[in-house]
Amino acid sequence: GIPATNLSRVAGLEKQLAIELKVKQGAENMIQTYSNGSTKDRKLLLTAQQMLQDSKTKIDIIRMQLRRALQ
């Protein structure tokens, strides 16, 4: 079985993952909103794209940590 310490770690990672998935969803929504907007929305679009990139990276890292914890 999986050690108890790993189980609480997994629960924490799953919570983090859920949050990051919401951030990713929000960033994707912002990108959709701003991509057909005016030029003043360009900065917001770039910010949203950066957020999305960061979020995807975090999600990958969390998933990797989850896999390790579940081994």
Rank of each mutant, 00 (worst) to 15 (best):
Q65P: 00
T57C: 14
K43S: 09
T39S: 11
T33K: 12
G26M: 12
S35R: 10
M51T: 07
Q65W: 09
L45V: 04
A27T: 03
K58H: 02
Y34E: 01
R68H: 15
S55P: 00
K22I: 08
G12T: 14
D41R: 03
I2L: 09
T47S: 13
S55R: 00
R63F: 09
A27H: 09
D54T: 10
S38T: 14
R68Q: 14
L66F: 01
I31Q: 01
Q65D: 04
K43N: 14
R67G: 03
M30D: 10
V23D: 01
N36K: 09
V23R: 12
A48G: 02
Q53F: 08
A69I: 13
T33Q: 13
R9L: 15
T57I: 14
M51K: 04
R63P: 00
A18N: 06
A18H: 05
K22M: 08
M51R: 06
A27F: 15
R63A: 04
L52G: 00
A69Q: 03
L70K: 07
D54R: 13
K58I: 03
L13C: 03
T5R: 02
D60M: 14
E14M: 15
L13M: 03
Q32Y: 06
T57K: 10
A27K: 01
V10G: 02
I19C: 12
L7T: 12
N6Q: 10
R68C: 15
N6I: 15
G1D: 10
L46M: 11
S35Q: 08
Q16F: 04
R67N: 05
L21I: 05
Q49I: 14
A48C: 04
D60A: 15
L17R: 01
T33Y: 08
R68S: 11
I19N: 09
A69W: 04
I59S: 01
N36Q: 09
I62P: 00
G1K: 12
T39P: 09
A48N: 01
L70I: 09
K24L: 15
N36A: 06
D54K: 12
K22A: 10
I19A: 13
I61K: 08
S8W: 07
P3T: 05
R67S: 06
L45H: 02
I62Q: 00
V10S: 02
E14K: 15
L7D: 14
L66H: 01
R68M: 13
L52P: 00
G1V: 09
L13K: 01
S35V: 08
M51A: 08
L13N: 00
Q25L: 07
I59Q: 00
A69H: 04
D60C: 15
N29R: 12
R67P: 01
A27W: 14
E14T: 13
K56F: 05
D41N: 07
D54L: 09
Q65K: 09
I61M: 14
Q50K: 11
G37P: 10
R42H: 15
S38A: 14
M30H: 04
L52K: 02
Q50Y: 04
R68F: 14
I59K: 00
L7H: 15
